[in-house]
Amino acid sequence: MTRTYPDDPADAFPRPPRTITDGEGREIEVVAADATDTEDLVEMYLDFNPEDRAQGIPPVKDEAIRKWLDVILGDECLNVVARHEGDAIGHATLVPDNEDEQELAIFVLQAYQGAGIGTALVQTLLGHGQDQGVGKVWLTVERWNEPAIALYEKVGFETSNTESFEVEMAIRL
């Protein structure tokens, strides 16, 4: 399958680590993460509201969460975590596919949604990707998830395919 990417690369994104003040006045740290953050992320995903799941992820049960995190926190993947007072409250990940492209996803706990943390996570993850030489990033999002689509567009993603249930979007770094 060939994906369509924007012709022009995006501008430079902020690199991790960084600290932002979110829309609710909370200090949020956005830092690079790897397998050593597994336990904190398991905690976060056990608190994740099932309503906010999309396309079958994140998994619900402890064991399934760990199995999934094993894959996306692997050496080939890039991750950033948002922390508030030390606790993981948001997570963004880039996972390579076999075409030298990377799939992106973000997750924010419900109490922290709508405060700009998702945007900061995506931007910082893309900055991390630019540092590591990542060229092409894609994602899928459910067609009715307008807040997420608006977020990705604001960051610079362009819609590349709307034929299926999910909208596919892509960005060139």
Binding site: I57, I72, T93, D97, E103
Partner: peptide, 10 residues
């Protein structure tokens, strides 16, 4: 998908 998202074929 690589990330674990379920996708239905066309």
């Amino acid at each position: 998908s690589p990330l674990g998202k379920i996708q239905l074929g066309s």
